[in-house]
Amino acid sequence: MSAFQEITQAAREDERVEFSAEAKKKIEWIYTRYPNREAALLPVLRVAEKEFDGIGAAAIDCIAREMGLSPGYIYGVFTFYTHYKRAGEGKYVLQVCATLPCALRGCRDVVHHLEDKLGIKPGETTEDGKFTLKKVECLASCDTAPVVQINDDYHENLTLEDLDKLLESFE
């Protein structure tokens, strides 16, 4: 057995997580909506996202056991999609749309403002684990640019003052 296996298998045992009964019920319902289990992967990842507050190695391991898929496969699918909350991201994930229509209406100022205010660069999380700043691609709200999606909610037509107020409301 290589060193590789020893290290990671031990880690896996330590961090093992399980779905709650409620989540399992939800997953069972999801299965009924698709002709095969594989197809339920994206919705199940959403369940795991809520259940474990972001998806990490332990969550993928748990899903693999639940769905009977290879963890490698889930890992490949999970990393393809950018919108799932990753384990270790802050309580509030600030996703600033940086695509052309928003860029034309000043999203860069929003990003810079947030960088200054939070002291982090896009892709980073504040030390207190409260905010994660992300630059994302088009959020389909170009008429109300600039837009920031904070967790599930869109905040549109933002001015820097609005943004400050918004951040304060989270504190």
Binding site: E38, A40, L42, P43, V77, Y81, H83, Y84, E137, C138
Partner: peptide, 22 residues
Amino acid sequence: RGAGAYICGEETGLLSSLEGKR
């Protein structure tokens, strides 16, 4: 529900995604 991939707006990319794949 998708999960953040422009390419899933492409007809066949969407189907792959709906099948639970990349």
